[in-house]
């Protein structure tokens, strides 16, 4: 069975990942909506920036976060002095790092769903007097909900696996920022930690597969529903 330290890592992972979905989902919806439905100056730049975490080394993302939200950085210092917010070495910071790393995946899931929508329905809504924001709320988002749900599950599952950005930005503190992958890493650093690492790795694997399967099923269900 799991030791209390391992259970703590599981709990930290859940908290960090859940919070990261709450941060990333609204942003992913906004960006997916903007990229999917509008042409505007800076669209390509937004596309590139939003997808950058996919190709950047996670350590680099962690480093950028550290130099933005560190207590000595202008923004990090300002947030700390004004609101008392602290991201470095906290589980909130781990959630922020995870949110940024999972954003591209979540944007993709929402966008697929939005693009599967029949444009004819949008035209029908326009002739019925619905303006742009109205249509977004009454038509586009309700029709895209399977994609939005899939994005949330995918973001959660992927967030459980985040390593590089977390360890660089908020370090590896048991009970605060030590998620499952970080706990596996720590176990492997200790003599005789292989059994613990194997247990944690199996757990991670099962969680990730379950999340991915749920997300794929929802995307398919959503596509069928919109046809």
């Amino acid at each position: 069975m799991l030791t209390s330290l391992e259970l703590q890592a599981l709990a930290t992972s859940f908290i960090v990942s859940t919070r990261s979905v709450l941060i990333a989902l609204p942003i992913a919806i906004l960006i997916a909506y903007a990229l999917g439905r509008f042409r505007f100056p800076g669209r390509t730049l937004l596309d590139v920036l939003a997808h950058a975490p996919l190709i950047l080394p996670p350590v680099v993302v962690g480093y950028v976060l550290l130099s933005t939200f560190g207590l000595n950085a202008p923004l990090g210092g300002f947030l700390h002095r004004t609101f008392g917010w602290r991201f470095v070495f906290t589980s909130e910071g781990a959630s922020l790092a995870t949110a940024i790393m999972t954003l591209p995946l979540m944007i993709r899931a929402v966008r697929l769903s939005l693009e599967a929508m029949d444009e004819g329905l949008d035209e029908a809504a326009r002739t019925l007097g619905a303006k742009a924001l109205d249509r977004a709320l009454s038509l586009h988002l309700p029709l895209a909900w399977p994609g939005i749900l899939a994005a949330a599950i995918l973001g959660f599952a992927a967030g459980l696996g985040e390593f590089g950005a977390i360890i660089t930005f908020v370090s590896n503190i048991p009970g605060e920022t030590q998620t499952l992958p970080l706990a596996i890493y720590s176990a492997l650093q200790q003599p005789g930690g292989e059994a613990a690492a194997a247990r944690l790795a199996t757990l991670s694997f099962a969680l990730a597969i379950a999340g991915l399967a749920a997300s794929e099923l929802l995307i398919r269900f959503g596509k069928r529903r919109l046809q």
């Binding site: 035209e123 029908a124 002739t127 019925l128 007097g129 619905a130």
Partner: peptide, 28 residues
């Protein structure tokens, strides 16, 4: 288009699939 107050009956009806008949009727 959204200000013209034109009732367009499309060839393929274009009913909103996530709404009931009543909700479709009440949309406009």
């Amino acid at each position: 288009a959204e200000e013209r107050r034109i009732g367009y009956v499309f060839q393929d009806a274009r009913l909103f699939p996530h709404l009931s008949v009543r909700e479709n009727l009440l949309y406009g």
